[in-house]
Design a protein around this nucleic acid. Structure first.
Lengths: 190, 190
DNA sequence: ACCTGAACACCGTTCAAGT
DNA sequence: ACCTGAACACCGTTCAAGT
């Protein structure tokens, strides 16, 4: 990449991070280009679709999440590892408001720029889930797609201003459901 | 309302139901007016905001949901009543793709045309939840807002084409979490 | 190679002008 | 009273023309 192009790319990404943080994943691309001081065509040259921009914004987070999964697999118990990773996955998905919809769409669309990232993220979660299931610590009737869906649901909750205050509590409720084995659910109180 | 206005209102609503069913709650209002054969200003006269249109589309469903709650309170056990009502509430929210975001926003915005409907719906669910909690059949650390949030999360799941196939299963997982008392969750398998 | 911005086909929303 | 559609200020996306 030519030096001037590289500079535009980096600057666009920095501005996009600001704007998307402020306005969400559906922020105006025109506005981003305007605030970056480049032509609209320049933005499209570097990021041909909105997903390409989102992928660039989220890539570092996705990579961290994959590394985190590998680390947790070594260092923590199956339950702690899964819970901790889930919390981080929700945080990544919730990083930019509205981005979760693109992420779940991308996992079923191999042509999306976000496809590879989301697929890798799901695979990392699936490993931690399988490990917990092998020890009987997580519901056996969940698969990686279910886990990804629940991460998405929790990220969606956090994206809604009126629900956000209860998001941490609902994380505990849903994480508890994942870590509860079906046979224990029927148990009566006291 | 004048007879010609009434006719336009009814026809707009019927066309809007078709278009919103096809394209989701963010369908083009221009397109609805066009397909209804009326001027764009006529649509705005009858439905000054998008939420007013959504409210008109959903009102019958909201009313049914309130009636259903009252009926279930008489006829069913606390667990069955809550589960059955939850299923119906998710179905209503999922009736029009994307409508759930407007609904959760409306519950915190008294100026929204959807505010009253959503508030009533939440109150109905809160009663069924409280009844189940009183008999120790539902988690005590949930309130009506949590229940509404979980309905929203499940409706959101169903709105995502890639997650929809697992939505019924995830309904069971989350409904199970609501009906599980915290003390039972810690129980070990076997 | 890369950048620019006009052009195209859309939006939501408002409002003067008509009946 | 009610309806109409032009007008305004926006979009996302493409692409001929420039450097």
């Amino acid at each position: 990449m030519r030096a001037d192009a590289r500079k535009n790319y980096d600057h666009l990404l920095a501005i996009a991070r600001e704007v998307v943080t402020e306005q969400g994943a559906d922020a105006s691309l025109r506005d981003i280009a305007r605030r970056a001081g480049v032509g609209l065509g320049t933005l499209y040259r570097h990021f041909p679709r909105r997903e390409a921009l989102l992928d660039a914004l989220l890539r570092a987070n996705f990579d961290e999440l994959t590394a985190k999964a590998a680390e947790l697999e070594r260092s923590s118990s199956p339950e702690e590892a899964l819970t901790s990773w889930l919390r981080d996955a929700v945080a990544v998905a919730h990083n930019y408001r509205g981005a979760i919809d693109s992420m779940v769409a991308a996992i079923a669309d191999p042509d999306s720029a976000l496809h590879a990232s989301c697929h890798t993220m799901r695979a990392a979660g699936t490993r931690l889930l399988a490990r917990a299931q092998a020890e009987g610590k997580a519901r056996a009737d969940l698969d990686g797609t279910d886990l990804f869906a629940l991460v998405g649901a929790l990220a969606w909750l956090g994206d809604q201003p009126s629900l956000e205050p209860r998001a941490p509590h609902l994380f505990d409720v849903i994480a508890g459901a994942i870590l509860t084995t079906p046979s224990a659910r029927g148990t009566k109180k006291r």
